[in-house]
Amino acid sequence: MTQREYQKLAARKRPASPVAADCAWAFCVGGLLCAAGQLSADLLRQAGMPLPQARLTASLILVTFSVLATVLHVYDDVGRRAGAGLSVPITGFANSIAAAAIEFKSEGLVLGMAAKMFVIAGPVLVYGMAASVLYGLIYWVVGLF
């Protein structure tokens, strides 16, 4: 049997992911998170906070809860089911940093925790910043004409 034939066989025998259930979980959990964020922002607005600060504070509230859930060993259990519903919102970013910080503490505060804290979030930061620079350049060039 050639490598190609075997890979075809292995692909045929591979059980498919439960896409419908995964999507339902992601939709519900992601939707709930966004609703919670919106609710926080609205409440803050009602309490008299200006809109930009209210939106920023709503994000901070979600980040805080995400880190707390990570520390309390709850986040990974929900994440296993919710998938992208939990990882795409800002909660996923917070979890990836907090989880790495906890995990690599055993290698020390400098070479472990601090150095490896961005092991998952790092690429998001690098390419996120690179993309924003590129976008800024395009925006600037277009503005010249």
Binding site: S17, P18, T70, V71, Y75, D76, N95, I102, E103, V119
Partner: peptide, 17 residues
Amino acid sequence: ERQFRFPLEYGSQRTPT
């Protein structure tokens, strides 16, 4: 997990295989 995959508390989803 920490050597081959992700930190323990990272909320990733596993595939059926």
